[in-house]
Design a protein around this nucleic acid. Sequence first.
DNA 1: TTTGACTTAGAACGAGAGTTCGCTTACAAT
DNA 2: ATTGTAAGCGAACTCTCGTTCTAAGTCAAA
Lengths: 218, 218
Amino acid sequence: MAKAKQKPLTEKQKAILKFMQDFIEQHRFPPTIRDICNATGIKSTSVVNYNLNKLVNAGLLQRSQRKSRGLRLKDRADLHRVIRVPLIGTIGASEPVPVPEDIGAHYDEDDLIEVMPMLLRGCDPAEVFALRVKGQSMIDAMIREGDIIVFRKQDVAQDGEMVAVWLSERGETTLKYFYNEGDRIRLQPAHPTMPPIYVHPAQCHIQGRVLSVIRINV
Amino acid sequence: MAKAKQKPLTEKQKAILKFMQDFIEQHRFPPTIRDICNATGIKSTSVVNYNLNKLVNAGLLQRSQRKSRGLRLKDRADLHRVIRVPLIGTIGASEPVPVPEDIGAHYDEDDLIEVMPMLLRGCDPAEVFALRVKGQSMIDAMIREGDIIVFRKQDVAQDGEMVAVWLSERGETTLKYFYNEGDRIRLQPAHPTMPPIYVHPAQCHIQGRVLSVIRINV
DNA sequence: TTTGACTTAGAACGAGAGTTCGCTTACAAT
DNA sequence: ATTGTAAGCGAACTCTCGTTCTAAGTCAAA
């Protein structure tokens, strides 16, 4: 399906969006079409309906047909909410990373951590999980015991990405920047004065990419 | 006004609350009374209406009369929202910390960062601000360039708290654990192998307490 | 048993609210 | 001038949905 050419929003449409943001902020449920009429000075519900459909088409809005107040802001509303990420265990040097098989599964309340969307860096929440750091082994990655690391589950990586890898020959988990040098993998610590290590590609099992780090036990 | 005696919620009322949480999570607008009927197996809208009024009376719910979907959860809603914290500048070794005088003032959209409530560690948002780390000088605090540090504005500290201090004699800002040893202040780096420094209390100007650290430029 | 408070069901009412349709206006392209 | 498209208005229609009313069932206290 071809993407529709992005027309700039009309003044009415901007006013509708603005009002919806304010209304939802205040009431915590969406306005009716007639609410929008009154707030924007538009005389006819059909005009609002018309412009709402435009906004849906522009991807800024979602509607539930035939439902009162069946309006959702697409863009901004999500940004003001937290996202629940499963905190599935710990990560330490001497154990493999506990990668979840189905991230979308049901978790207990206690095993979920609420993070702001920025920490997911645009990734699908269904691919994201978090681990708490155990032990002092991640110091060369500038990560402390107790830090929470947000990962995207993946088993390949691009050069320069920080990944959690299981080094099967050493029986060791580590966090390093990943560089594929063809016949070998260079794993570069985050700490500027630490030297890289080199491993054979067959020994380097990528468990996930580091998206962000949270430190609350300062 | 005397507070009504707190009766325990009935199973129906618990089911209604649970369903409302799930529904709002999923649809981002509240359910109708008939939605609740279907979800909970209650046969009559009047029964739902009856129990909704009970929940309002118990302070768990708000209703807007005569409005479709005019329901709001009272308690939990805020917990799932982000808090905007002013990101007012950078912190580096060679400059004083730019402490804001009025945190509650108006900030531009770009100067606000949205964080989950946990990062404030219970502090009043009006006391909290954030700074981005510039330069490599915070490595001994296990903090990298680009990290965002969330502070509570305060000029005194308890032992063991991590604080940002301006050392007036050295002309230097640093992040250390604070220990008051009477005639001197011991400032302990986060990195376990680094030695502490000792300063005279008069030279040690506390700028704020570190609440949390966010690293998104991994 | 009787009483009364609490809870449930069912139905009906009426206002709330989304949708559709015909008609008009504005404006640029042909 | 004509055509076509986008935008607006007003009214009517129909379904949604909150509210209210009556009646009945439950259960503990008197």
